[in-house]
């Protein structure tokens, strides 16, 4: 593709800048608001300060919610890796025909919106032998289903790129057992793809709200639920919260993009 010059080029540049501006505006506004001492009915805030960030990052409830969000997401991703990696390996190595069936099965988390699932989950695990509602465990389980389609597809693409069967055959010719070949040869080859899938999954699990709010709520407050519960407090404080959240996710996606670029 080559860049266009002249009148047409100017038009395209303008459109791209405009697009950038549209995407930037809410973020920039929130950032400015979070740094303002007060800002009402003037073009620009009357003064700049970091006090909202200081207040936010010394608020124990926020720190607790942040930590709990981290725990739930990391837990869910660990569980996903533990469940999905063996699954993928077995499907692709032993039962390649199962892949078509799995591709339909992993659509379920897409097809069933969290609100619908929640109704069933609340009834089934609200009481009785498997009472989990209100604990982080149910969130970890649900987040596994959310991450599943994405992780399954991402790792499948990776497996196809590394020629699983040849790699396994080569390792076994050299005397490795199936287990050794899987752990020592296949797994290291998947490392980068797995990291990218994990980072991106993390960034959208971190933003999950419906399950967290309906199934657990304030009993184990995650960041999104905290954000929602704080909606009536100071706008500046909330802006600092939004910007902190976004900055965190930004770093994660940036790292994931970097890894993704190195890969190719």
């Amino acid at each position: 593709m080559r860049a266009e010059t002249g009148k047409g080029g100017l038009y395209h540049k303008l459109v791209v800048y405009l697009l950038f501006l549209i995407l930037l505006l809410p973020l920039a506004g929130t950032l400015l608001y979070s740094l303002a001492t007060s800002w009402s009915a003037t073009m620009l805030p009357s003064g700049l300060t970091f006090k909202w960030y200081v207040a936010l990052w010394s608020e124990p409830r926020f720190l607790a919610a942040f930590g709990q969000s981290l725990l739930v997401c990391v837990g869910a991703l660990l569980l996903s890796v533990l469940l999905i990696l063996p699954l993928l390996f077995v499907v692709h190595y032993h039962f390649p025909r199962l892949d078509a069936f799995m591709n339909v099965l992993i659509l379920l988390p897409f097809a069933v919106p969290p609100v619908v699932s929640s109704v069933g989950l609340l009834q089934l695990y609200g009481s009785g032998p498997m009472a989990m509602v209100g604990t982080p465990w149910i969130l970890i389980g649900c987040y596994f289903t959310i991450a599943l389609p994405f992780m399954y597809r991402a790792i499948t693409n990776n497996l196809q790129a590394i020629n699983l069967r040849d790699l396994m055959d080569a390792a076994q010719l050299l005397g490795a057992s199936t287990w050794q070949a899987a752990m020592l040869v296949v797994l290291p080859n998947l490392r980068k793809g797995l990291m990218v899938a994990l980072l991106l999954s993390f960034s959208f699990l971190f933003g999950e709200f419906v399950f967290a709010n309906l199934l657990v709520g304030t009993r184990y407050e995650t960041l999104q639920v905290y954000l929602n519960n704080m909606r009536n407090s100071s706008g500046h404080f909330n802006s600092a919260l939004v910007i902190s959240y976004f900055a965190f996710v930004l770093v994660l996606t940036w790292v994931a993009n970097r890894l993704n670029k190195d890969k190719t």
């Binding site: 929130t30 608001y33 909606r231 706008g235 939004v242």
Partner: peptide
Amino acid sequence: FANMTSNFAGVPLAFAFIILLGFNGA
């Protein structure tokens, strides 16, 4: 940048809009 803002959804996005364009938004 578009890739990054695509993660800017849900409650935080709603907040950003409320803060800027809500009843008393700047």
